[in-house]
Design a binder for these strands. Structure first.
Lengths: 222, 222
DNA sequence: TACCGTGCGTCCACGTGCTTGACATCGAGC
DNA sequence: GCTCGATGTCAAGCACGTGGACGCACGGTA
């Protein structure tokens, strides 16, 4: 009976529930903090070697105390990893957009996606920093010898994009194709092609995988 | 001498200053809160009459306590005013984009801007709410009898846009032109034209002011 | 008219998280 | 070896959102 007597506060009304898209302020604020810090780190890394970008500088640039950086990331290596993952995520978003623009033509989609990726990589300040600082910085290992997290994370995201765009694709096939594309992408990050060769490279890779992709799609898509 | 002995903390280093674009987390977080609340209010107003959108519902939708809404806006009338101003700001942004797309052709720019505005107004949920609820709600006065803040704020922003795009314009002329456009815009919010007449209306207004605008621009722009 | 439900506006004790200043530790450079 | 700067950790302080309470005004109802 206590529940009946209890004052009905406004918060109990289901009409006062959070927005359907889950855009509550608390969530958004937390992801905003991470994003602000990672963008501050990326901006600073554009100028000087990553090694010389201090935690204090990142905090200052983001308008936040140094302690907050440690609360959010724990340590410098973990921030570094998050930074590279964040940058990867931005590339994947651009690539995903390019793929979705060509739902009916997988070869064209792959060519466009690779073109977008190569273009973005050639202009990215953090990518430039990675390949500028040969091995003394702790950035390069993250996309090479220690690059498995990126590879697997990116492969997973790419595979999902591909299966969403081309539902005929089976899981293992999408994983393999996505993994191959990711490995090629990472390779072109570390060893870029000249600007003039970029389009030809994108088209070449697309030509290379076209028969494979089309054989998969023709299986029961025809 | 104390200043010499004082420990030099990392925060003193100018290299740790906030980002040049002023994108510190604290600022962004505060504006994020306002935006989240105002969008929650707008979304709720799309369904039901504004009168029935409670402060508790807005807070709940934004994932925030009711008190936070009062800390941010103070009272319901002030939140209402902020909501309308926020919506105005979104319209102004769209209109500004349209103007900037035609820097060389003022008449075309005005026509495009009006077209964008009429289109956006006809689709906007809050605008629909304003004209749906005749006078019992406290929304309508804010764009009519109590509409001076919107008119003056919008006029100022529009005048700045115009002078940026067409530097030949003098201050009073830009103010007058912007004010006239704002008054017309508010009129079409309250008394919209049918969808089919929208383009003709935009062109008509553009034709109307063309001689005036061109006479101003020809003054020393020719 | 008196009653009652509901939303507005305000207050306050509380918790969470960012801030500030300090400290130990480690590695690089003199 | 010593100093300096950066990393990582800690504790106290503080700002701000939270949750619950309250009084008040208003509209509907007996």
């Amino acid at each position: 009976m206590a529940s009946v007597l209890r004052t009905l506060s406004a918060a109990d009304d289901p009409a006062n529930a959070p927005a359907p898209d889950g855009a509550t302020f608390a969530d958004a604020s937390r992801s905003l903090l991470r994003r602000t810090l990672l963008e501050a780190a990326r901006d600073l890394a554009a100028d000087r070697p990553w090694r010389s970008v201090t935690m204090a500088a990142i905090a200052g640039r983001a308008g936040v105390s140094r302690q907050t950086v440690y609360n959010e990331f724990g340590s410098r290596p973990r921030l570094t990893e998050a930074l590279v993952l964040h940058e990867t995520e931005e590339f994947l978003t651009a690539v995903g957009d390019a793929i979705r623009r060509h739902p009916a033509d997988p070869s064209e989609a792959l060519s466009a996606a690779l073109g977008v990726f190569l273009q973005a990589a050639s202009e990215d300040a953090l990518v430039a920093a990675v390949i500028r600082e040969d091995g003394r910085d702790d950035l390069l290992p993250l996309v090479t010898s220690e690059g498995r997290p990126i590879l697997e994370h990116g492969t997973g995201r790419l595979a999902v994009m591909m299966r969403e765009t081309w539902p005929v694709l089976r899981g293992p096939e999408a994983d393999f194709l996505a993994g191959t594309v990711m490995r090629l992408g990472l390779s072109y990050v570390v060893l870029p092609v000249a600007d003039a060769e970029r389009d030809a490279t994108a088209r070449g890779i697309a030509d290379l995988v076209r028969p494979y992709v089309e054989s998969l799609l023709a299986r029961d898509g025809g």
